[in-house]
Design a binder for these strands. Structure first.
Length: 690
RNA sequence: GCCCGGAUGGCGAAAUGGUAGACGCACGAGACUUAAAAUCUUGUUUCCGUAAGGAAGUGUGGGUUCGAGUCCCACUCCGGGCACCA
């Protein structure tokens, strides 16, 4: 079993083994039933716009219409197409059906049978990737059949082409080459007619294919209408005749939820013969779906019977080997004793089928499902299980689910934008509908951290040999240094190259702070005094600035600037002869989330207990942040020509007088006309002279 | 092809439309040392200048503004996502 990208030229990327496509019995989860809600509820979450857009594109909602085209010469049979452009119906010059469309056999004219069969065979041999990758050259074959355009009775040839996908819409389209790039390319290639039915609204020039909005032309009674209006009218008119209706389509497909490998949660399903199922169903009233999932093999139909709740969870059997089964089924297919069983419908108990049938009416012959679940089966709800990991009766207790709620902030890589983050939303909504969780969305606020690249600026990988192991850094510098450096490198969301020398900087910073707190003898640094007013005015002000900046930085996830502010603070402490104990303790607290081990040790050595983690977060005093002097910048014609420390809230007249008297500014304005003065208090004085 | 994001010293980066380069790395000079490491002091965008000072400068070209790394338009390059979805 390989993923698409593991197949190269029909062979496995590793080993070069031939690869074939095979239909397997698999399970899918009906995520499509939630498509509209998954789309609409994106409005309510605080996520990066780019991620929301990716999910929107993935869900791919598009509004349009399903229209029925009568088939020529076959009474009553119709070809249903989906289009987002019913307004261009008069421009339809041919139809296209996907090669896999079930009606292809029905409509193909005898003379075209051979050509169509050959084309279908060729298309089937292509992988999905080939069908999309080779998009440049469109190919197709005429079926020999015609459809009738419902608005004007025109005879329209039906082609078979693999640029139309069976998995989307109805698997058939009406082609309007004048107003669709793909249809245009195909029509030119096969010399099919092209009829323009939309003209630019502003009367401007029109180059086909013309896909922008405009007004209808060559469209009978609809000519002259604006296209949006025409969409509504044509759809409504066809609906009135019973041959069309407005619909919505999604790109989102149902979610293939089974894997053919050993590791993975086994499906709690037992397959029983269709003949036995009614007896089973009678014992499990209210516990089974109205219609069982079924499949047929060797002429026998089997019905899916879920294990009773008391028998959950189903665990994997102990095996000697979990190598592939050889048949395409999972390795579980070889665990005969686990697989082929007498199954107790009421209790879920099982006995190997090699044993005699146990006594009692509840026992039925069954075969377990051999597919296993993908990794998503766990990643979709782990954040709920963390709340109550040992709960044996449910995901987590309702009280804990209510108390803790969902994660306040979810940090994860952008590579999860459409898979994990969409699947987990889907599960959460299903759980919400089932009354298990009290919220509709799992991750209210999302943030994508960047990845750390190798020293060479490339993604770390073993093959490139640029991998840096955190264990090595922890061994040489400690985990506090590593943690601090990762945060100091740059903005959290950016990807950044690893710099082995850069880590020395933050390591030195931590050592310097340690020395400020603890002397070489291991006792508190004698410069730390208990006198509350020991700090200079500047140091006090800097402390309050630092408390504010670090707190704001944490809230905004700007750790790099928070750390640089702490460096500025510690540099200032180092230059001071005395520092008050409360100031040192405050800085320890600020550092604690960044370098928890070091902070905890210093906290204790400076005589504090209990843990620094339990101390309330420091508050800054707004009054301590205000300054009485500010640096006013003088500009002449927008150029910096000097600056001066001035009292706050200086008047413009005073500022102007200072500028005129300033020896650096004066030469630039002397003897010139002062045309304009721009004064931004406490910041800048710009003199425009001519 | 379409949709995002990014580009600032030798390097990682900082900067509510108001002194571009904070903080750190690297490098230079000095102090301490027999010496080295560590530590401390100091300098470091580029060009001209001994200096004072001047000029240029945030990927490129235009624009708005007294003033643009920041806002607007066009483009180049790099990265990511999607890719025949009718």
């Amino acid at each position: 079993m390989l993923a698409n990208e593991e197949v190269v030229d029909g062979r496995s990327e590793v080993g070069g083994f031939p690869v074939e496509r095979r239909n397997l019995r698999q399970w899918v989860l009906r995520i499509t039933a939630y498509a509209d809600r998954l789309l609409a509820d994106l409005r309510d979450v605080d996520w990066p716009d780019s991620t929301k857009r990716m999910q929107e594109a993935w869900i791919g909602r598009s509004e349009g219409a399903e229209l029925d085209f009568a088939l020529e010469g076959s009474q009553g049979a119709t070809l249903k197409v989906f289009t987002t452009r019913p307004d261009t119906l008069y421009g339809c010059t041919y139809m296209v059906m996907a090669p896999e469309h079930p009606l292809v056999d029905v409509i193909t004219a005898p003379a075209q049978r051979e050509a169509v069969a050959a084309y279908r065979k060729k298309a089937a041999a292509k992988s999905d990737l080939e069908r999309t990758d080779l998009a440049k050259d469109k190919s197709g074959v005429f079926s020999g059949a015609y459809a009738i355009n419902p608005v004007n009775g025109a005879r329209v040839p039906i082609w078979i082409a693999d640029y139309v996908l069976m998995g989307y819409g109805t698997g058939a389209i009406m082609a309007v080459p004048a107003h669709d790039e793909r249809d245009y390319e195909f029509a030119v290639h096969y010399s099919l007619p092209i009829i323009q039915v939309i003209a630019p609204g502003n009367g401007g020039e029109c180059v086909l294919p013309f896909v922008d909005d405009g007004n209808l032309v060559n469209s009978g009674p609809y000519s002259g209408l604006e296209w949006a209006e025409a969409k509504k009218r044509i759809t409504a008119d066809l609906a009135g005749r019973g041959i069309g209706k407005a619909t919505v389509n999604f790109k989102l497909r149902d979610w293939l939820f089974s894997r053919q490998r050993y590791w993975g949660e086994p499906f709690p399903i037992v397959w029983v013969n269709e003949r036995d199922y009614p007896l089973v169903a009678a014992r499990r009233v209210g516990d089974l779906p109205p219609n069982p999932v079924t499949y047929s093999q060797d002429g026998v139909r089997y019905c899916a019977l879920p294990l009773p709740a008391v028998a959950l969870p189903l665990t994997l059997p102990e095996v000697e080997s979990y190598l592939p089964s050889g048949t395409g089924e999972s390795p579980l297919a070889n665990c005969t004793d686990w697989l082929e069983i007498w199954f107790n419908v009421d209790t879920g108990a099982a006995v190997s089928a090699s044993q005699p049938r146990p006594a009692g009416d509840a026992w039925v012959r069954g075969r377990r499902e051999t597919n296993t679940m993908p990794q998503w089966a766990g990643s979709c709800w782990y954040y709920l299980r963390y709340l109550d990991p040992h709960n044996g009766s449910g995901i987590a207790s309702p009280e804990l689910l209510r108390y803790w709620g969902t994660p306040d902030l979810y940090v994860g890589g952008a590579e999860h934008a459409v898979l994990h983050l969409l699947y987990a939303r889907f599960w959460h909504k299903v759980l919400f509908d089932a009354g298990v969780v009290p919220q509709n969305e799992p991750f209210k606020k999302l943030f994508h951290q960047g990845i750390i690249l190798g020293e060479d600026g490339e993604k770390m990988s073993k093959s490139r040999g640029n991998v840096v192991s955190p264990d090595t850094i922890i061994a040489s510098h400690g985990s506090d240094t590593l943690r601090l450096y990762l945060m100091f490198l740059g903005p959290l969301e950016d990807k950044k190259p690893w710099n082995p020398r850069g880590i020395e900087g933050v390591h030195r910073f931590l050592q310097k702070f340690w020395r400020e707190c603890i002397s070489a003898e291991g006792t508190p640094n004698p410069k730390i005094v208990d006198q509350a007013d020991a700090d200079s005015a500047e140091l006090t002000k800097l402390l309050h600035e630092t408390v504010k900046k670090v707190g704001d930085g944490i809230e905004a996830l700007r750790f790099n600037t928070a750390i640089s502010q702490m460096m500025i603070m510690v540099n200032a402490m180092q230059k001071s002869d005395r520092v008050s104990r409360t100031t040192v303790l405050t800085v320890i607290q600020l550092l604690a989330p960044f370098a928890p081990h070091l902070a905890e040790e210093l906290w204790e050595r400076l005589g504090r207990a209990p843990s620094v983690l339990q101390a309330p977060w420091p508050q800054y005093d707004e009054a301590k942040l205000v300054r009485d002097q500010v640096k006013l910048v003088f500009q002449v014609n927008g150029k910096h020509r000097g600056d001066q420390s001035v009292p706050v809230n200086l008047s413009q007249e005073d500022a102007l007088a200072l500028a005129r008297a300033n020896e650096k500014v004066a030469p630039h304005i002397d003897g010139k006309d002062l045309k304009r003065v721009i004064y931004v208090q406490n910041k800048i004085l710009n003199l425009v002279v001519g």
